[in-house]
Design a protein around this nucleic acid. Structure first.
Lengths: 206, 206
DNA sequence: TATTTTAGCGAACACGTGTACGCTCAATAT
DNA sequence: ATATTGAGCGTACACGTGTTCGCTAAAATA
């Protein structure tokens, strides 16, 4: 039970996943991904694909999982910067935009499959976005003492704005992306002020 | 020059467009749209397709245009309700959500091709979204007297929130969609309050 | 050492795809 | 009345697709 065989299997599984990622580009999305081409790039015969995944869909879902994992790593990194002091909003938005810039194919996949044609994919992506939102809600409740309801409203709005900006950033050039980032930071701050105003409104009305 | 021939041509052109729309569903998106199937549903031979469109892409761009037109009609309808009194935010969000519910395949198309794999499509959709945003900016500047800069920030944020909500509404059941609508209205109001607070902030700082 | 398991391969199948070509025949133009 | 145009059709082609089946050879197990 040395596992030399199992190691090799996971290795070519990785090759398949990376080959699939390579083939995801601006012009060539998951929908038009071909088992044969993926296998070719991974250096195995088309039929051998089935030793690792039952479907192309199963491969795709693995890609989504990888993307979600990368996204959560991004969140942790962002929180580290916060602990060291500095604006939580700026550091979060900035690292998010870096993610979009550096992991473009994965972000594009998440974005496309969020409203894609496979229910399984939509659910998988939504799950990742919900993680994102939930952690933001936790922060708003714990650190900023918002009510749960108001925190949810605010977090959801922020996630929508940031993801929308990410979508626009995909095609943008470096300087344009910079502009977009500042724009987004200002918008998130605007939402925060609005949530604060809403909170005060509730207090005085009561 | 009675035009009986030209009429017939536009008629089957419509048939093609409608056939394509019919084939757009939750499971079957534009990417996996087949010339042959579209032609079959329209009741013409596959080869006759080329009498009307050079490409499938040309057909698709026509679909986007149709979607954009429907969206602008929605905006006009929304503005009518405002003129008759009532909250501009509520009526706008409500009619938008109705659009999502009633014209689901078209909205899905817009949503998917916004981050889709054809540059031409992305640009076409972005053009429609920009229309949407620009009209909102005009309103904010003219009726609410925001500065152009602040109005743009605010309008962009609102569009992102509303489109994001629309995306989530696609899969939602009727009651869930109701909840989403109220949620969204509250979020847009929150942004409005935030923009207002930002404006006051600018005034006192100066 | 003998046996079983299994990652990977090659051949083959059935199918759907986009599209080029040349034809028909009714609507238009002359 | 005659000539031209053009929407629509049928045939045919070359190609890429997902997937099945039986095989090999190396690793794991007994």
């Amino acid at each position: 039970m040395s596992g030399i065989r199992a190691k090799q299997k996971q290795k070519t599984r990785r090759l398949l996943i990376e080959a699939a990622m390579n083939q995801l580009s601006a012009e060539h999305g998951y929908a038009s991904l071909s088992l044969r081409e993926v296998a070719r790039e991974a250096g195995i015969a088309p039929t051998s694909f089935y030793r690792h995944f039952q479907n192309m869909e199963e491969l795709g879902l693995s890609l989504v999982d990888e993307g979600g994992l990368a996204l959560r790593q991004l969140l942790r990194q962002s929180r580290l910067q916060i602990a060291r002091g500095g604006s939580i909003i700026r550091s979060s938005v900035t690292t998010f935009m870096s993610f979009v810039a550096n992991q473009t194919p994965i972000f594009r996949l998440l974005l496309q499959e969020k409203s894609g044609n496979s229910r399984a994919f939509r659910l998988a992506v939504q799950r990742e976005v919900d993680h994102f939102t939930a952690e933001l809600v936790d922060y708003l409740v714990a650190e900023q003492h918002y009510s749960h309801e108001l925190a949810e409203l605010q977090a959801n709005a922020i996630v929508r704005i940031v993801f929308g900006a990410g979508a626009d950033a995909i095609d943008a050039a470096e300087d344009e992306r910079q502009r977009l980032t500042e724009h987004t930071i200002a918008q998130v701050r605007m939402v925060a002020r609005g949530a604060d105003a809403t909170r005060q409104l509730g207090k005085t009305t009561k």
